[in-house]
């Protein structure tokens, strides 16, 4: 006996439904509750998560710059110099260390950072930069006026 009506009622929603949904469940594996088990709830959560990841990747760059600046400012304060004077002094000497490296030096190489801050102080005094009035000339820096162009 052939049951043609039953066969006509069965329809496939797509042969690869399982694997299509598995892609979503793989990303949602660490979510809580129905968000990791039920497809219609998981897809919304996954879309949200991927959006946040994309946005966060662009924000991370500006966040890191803010963090580096905070760390360099703290390092400068330890040695009694203002952040802007420090940066200006270094750039006038053609020292092109970037913020990431300066922050690393402030944490891990305090004596190197002190050397850079002393150098900045004497250069800012030589060039008579705005914030340099309150600094005493560092005795351990010998410029012989050669750093001023």
């Amino acid at each position: 006996m052939v049951f043609t009506t039953a066969m006509m009622l069965v329809r496939s929603r797509g042969p690869d439904e399982f694997w299509r949904k598995r892609k979503i469940f793989k990303i949602a594996a660490h979510f809580s509750g129905r968000r990791r088990n039920c497809y219609s709830i998981a897809i919304k959560a996954v879309h949200r998560a991927l959006q946040f990841a994309t946005i966060g990747r662009a924000l991370r760059k500006s966040d890191m710059i803010v963090l580096w600046n905070t760390r360099i400012r703290a390092g400068c304060e330890e040695h009694g110099i203002e952040l802007n004077t420090f940066k200006e002094g270094l750039s006038r000497c053609d020292i092109q260390l970037n913020k990431k490296v300066l922050a690393d030096l402030a944490i891990w190489e305090p004596s190197t950072f002190k050397a850079l801050s002393d150098l900045s102080k004497s250069v800012s005094i030589d060039y008579e930069l705005p914030g340099s009035e309150k600094y005493n000339v560092p005795t351990n820096v010998v410029t012989r006026g050669l750093l001023k162009k």
């Binding site: 000497c93 053609d94 020292i95 092109q96 260390l97 490296v101 190489e109 004596s111 190197t112 050397a115 850079l116 150098l119």
Partner: peptide, 15 residues
């Protein structure tokens, strides 16, 4: 090389 340093000294390149 922009900077080289050790325990007692640092050499800072310009640049």
């Amino acid at each position: 090389v922009l900077l080289v340093g050790g325990m007692d000294f640092t050499l800072i390149g310009r640049p």
